[in-house]
Structures are given as structure tokens and as C-alpha cells.
């Protein structure tokens, strides 16, 4: 049986990817952020997952406003790196896990989550930056990845509560897969940030800290936070945090926080990483 051993919450700021791609991680600006990724990388390398599910949003790369899937799962053998307007990131192609991905697609749809299925899809910084910060710069990514996209660009995104329930359904899907696989699930985006308007640059450390705390202590109530509260308190783009509820919902009731790091600023954003080990019996 496959099982989800842990969840990772992480920001996916494009500038973090650029800093890695251009070799700037040891500069005074970036060093405090990148030092903070070390223990999460060590944890991941030590636990050697067989596959990762990465919950992220596409930023006008694979999908435009022409077609806006609320929830989508990628079932391809591999996913090329998208050109987001400044050329593709120089990172390895992302290999998929079609067997588990198709199993999840079937299980989720039959459990009333009406997923869009993608057989071909480039992936952008929303997915590759979380891989980069947790895996470094290898020649090949250390595990196959199942991309799970959530719309957060066209309002309204799915509610946090719906995302949490999708996480639960993902857990059921994974646990009904026959092969013994260790799975890690990433929830990405956030934390507080606003990229647009006169209010650009908003950061709310207090909100972010409470959010990180409640992922362990009070996740279900946390998932019921309304969109306007995210936008008002954590910036218009802070609403990306709904994607973390998919990750948290996939872990079951009991988790242990093994690591967190929080840093301001990464460009316009409060960047965090948190590692939650799943302590819930399968």
C-alpha cells in the first residue's frame, strides 16, 4: 500500500528560482533564506520519498484565461519546463508517475472530485521552485512528481475547506494504491504577499505565524478562513495559501512539525517552509 509520510508547505516565489539559477544564493540578500532550506533538504534526502505530489498553481504558463481548470492532475510520463516570458528555467524535465496519477484521477473523480486530467502540460515556477528549494540543483530530480494544479489566478479559487477535503480524498486515493510507495505531498504558494496595486508589498508576519501554528493545532478550522480574509490580511496573492490545505488535508488528524523557516523578504513575499510528518495511522 502507498502512504503519505509527510507534507511540505513552501512558498514558490519565482525570484527564488532565479537566485538559484544565477548562482546568487550566497549573496547577503539571499543567504538568510537559503540557509533556512538546509534542514528541510536534509530531511527529504533522509526520507527518500518514491514520489511527490506537488499542489501548485499555474501562472499563465500552461493555461491561460481561455480555459481555467479549478483542480487538475497531470498524468504524463514527463512535464517540460515552461517559458513564462523570459525563457524556461534551466532545470531538469519533471518526470511524472502515470500509474499513481491515473489511479488518483480515477479515485478522486469517483469520490466526487471532478478533476481535469492533463496528458500534456508544461510546468512553471509554481512547481519547479518548490523542487529546487527542497532538492537543490541535481542533474535529475530525485523522485517522480504528480502535478496537481489549483486555480488561484481567476477569482474565486476553490475554498480552503474544499481544498482540505480534496486532500482527504487524495489520502484515500494514495492509500488504495497497491504498490508500497512512500509519498510526500507539497502545498505551495504564499505566504503573505501582494504583487499588485498601490498596496503591493504587504506582509503580515503575525498572520503567517498563526497560519503555520494552526496547520498542526487547528487545521480544519483554519481551512474555513474566507478568501477575503486572506486577501485583506495576507495580501491579494496570499490567497494562494488555500493550496496548503490540500497538503494538510492529505495528512490525517495527527502530524508532528519537524521543521519550519520563515523569512522576509523574498522579492515581494514572505517565504516559508514547513515540514509536517504524518503521524496518523493509515
Amino acid at each position: 500500500m502507498a502512504r503519505i509520510i509527510a507534507g511540505i508547505g513552501t512558498s514558490h516565489v519565482p525570484a527564488i528560482g532565479v537566485a538559484m539559477d544565477k548562482g546568487l544564493t550566497a549573496t547577503p540578500y539571499w543567504d538568510p533564506l537559503f540557509k533556512g532550506y538546509g534542514p528541510a533538504r536534509d530531511w527529504l534526502a533522509g526520507h527518500k520519498p518514491d514520489v511527490a505530489i506537488i499542489v501548485y498553481n499555474d501562472h499563465a504558463s500552461a493555461f491561460s484565461l481561455e480555459l481555467i481548470p479549478t483542480f487538475l492532475i497531470g498524468v504524463a510520463d514527463e512535464f517540460p519546463i515552461a517559458d513564462e516570458g523570459f525563457g524556461p528555467r534551466p532545470v531538469p524535465v519533471v518526470k511524472g508517475h502515470p500509474e499513481l496519477a491515473w489511479h488518483m484521477a480515477e479515485s478522486l473523480i469517483l469520490n466526487e472530485f471532478d478533476m481535469t486530467i492533463a496528458n500534456e502540460m508544461p510546468v512553471d515556477h509554481g512547481l519547479t521552485v518548490p523542487l529546487s528549494v527542497t532538492c537543490g540543483q541535481p542533474q535529475e530530480w530525485p523522485f517522480p512528481v504528480i502535478p496537481l494544479c489549483v486555480n488561484v489566478v481567476q477569482y474565486p479559487p476553490p475554498t480552503g475547506a474544499r481544498c482540505f477535503k480534496l486532500g482527504r480524498a487524495i489520502r484515500n486515493a494514495v492509500e488504495s494504491f497497491d504498490e508500497d510507495l512512500k509519498v510526500v505531498i507539497y502545498g505551495t504558494g504564499g505566504m503573505s504577499h501582494q504583487l499588485q496595486g498601490e498596496r503591493a508589498g504587504l506582509i503580515n508576519r503575525e498572520f503567517d505565524t498563526a497560519f503555520l501554528n494552526r496547520l498542526t493545532s487547528d487545521p480544519q478550522a483554519l481551512s474555513r478562513l474566507p478568501h477575503t480574509e486572506y486577501m485583506r490580511e495576507a495580501g491579494s496573492e496570499g490567497v494562494e495559501l488555500v493550496m496548503w490545505h490540500v497538503m494538510r488535508g492529505a495528512l490525517g488528524d495527527h502530524v508532528r512539525e519537524v521543521y519550519r523557516h520563515y523569512h522576509v523578504p523574498a522579492s515581494n513575499t514572505a517565504a516559508a517552509i514547513i515540514v509536517l510528518e504524518n503521524r496518523s495511522a493509515a
Binding site: 477569482y155 474565486p156 478568501h227 485583506r232 491579494s236
Partner: peptide, 15 residues
């Protein structure tokens, strides 16, 4: 969310 200053939520109206 229209009560939030300096913020242009990309909803159906703006879409």
C-alpha cells in the same frame, strides 16, 4: 473584498 484599498481582485467583472 472591494473594501480593501489599492487592490484589484481579478474576478468576473474584471475578467
Amino acid at each position: 473584498y472591494e473594501s480593501i484599498p489599492g487592490t484589484y481582485v481579478y474576478d468576473s467583472v474584471r475578467g
